[in-house]
């Protein structure tokens, strides 16, 4: 039977190195995945993930158990990841957050939904796109990569995103919208899909 995280944390606090190693092995891939999504370079993600575990160990005494250990661990990994890409964050805020007509017409709404079919989980196209997804993510600006990973991988709520990123809820929603839109446009490109006549492209937004 698997020992729960809190029991392992308690043991690690008491000096049990094996208990801490168990936590590392348990979460190493997911922490790496989070870091990779944000920093995009696998070697940097490897270092960031290791830093996260070392930092967690340094602050084990501060962990109060108010949230899950994994939540605390991912939060630390996210902070280190964001710090690692700070120099890359040069995009203009408006390009990242503002939802206007140009943003709404980016990509073509419904194309992916239609192409992936009624049961996307079983789609062959889906499997192909999953393989392209990491590359697509790497093409997004850092702020978009970060919010997508926090939302889709870590599962943070709007409120948690607002708190962690230091932006209002409205900005969280608009930034997520932009990030998804860009990701979908890239996936459509990889799949060779384009807007078809008769299908919505978002242009009706500009019509009176």
């Amino acid at each position: 039977m698997e020992v729960d995280d809190l029991a392992l944390v308690e043991k690690a606090r008491s000096g049990d190195a094996d208990a801490f190693r168990t936590l590392v092995v348990r979460y190493q891939r997911k922490v790496f995945a989070v870091a990779l999504g944000i920093v995009k370079d696998p070697d940097l993600a490897w270092d960031v993930a290791q830093d996260a575990f070392v930092r967690v160990h340094q602050h084990l005494a501060d962990f109060k158990g108010e949230s899950a250990f994994s939540t605390w661990l991912f939060r630390i990994a996210t902070h280190i990841s964001i710090d690692a890409i700070r120099k890359e964050r040069s995009s203009k805020k408006d390009d990242i957050d503002q939802v206007d007509e140009a943003a709404l017409s980016e990509g073509a709404s419904g194309i992916l939904g239609t192409a992936l079919g009624s049961n996307p989980q079983e789609s062959v196209l889906r499997k192909e796109l999953v393989e392209k997804m990491t590359a697509a993510l790497a093409e997004l600006p850092p702020a978009h990569r970060t919010i997508l990973v926090l939302r889709e991988v870590e599962g943070l709520s709007y409120e948690e995103l607002s708190e962690q990123l230091g932006i209002p809820k409205g900005t969280v929603m608009s930034r997520l919208f932009h990030a998804r839109k860009k990701m979908q446009a890239l996936l459509q490109g990889y799949a060779g899909l384009s807007a078809r006549p008769g299908r919505s492209t978002g242009r009706e937004d500009a019509e009176p």
Binding site: L137, V149, V153
Partner: peptide
């Protein structure tokens, strides 16, 4: 529809 179709892919 796009969002639902791509859910979980990341």
């Amino acid at each position: 529809a796009d969002l639902e179709a791509t859910g979980g892919m990341l």
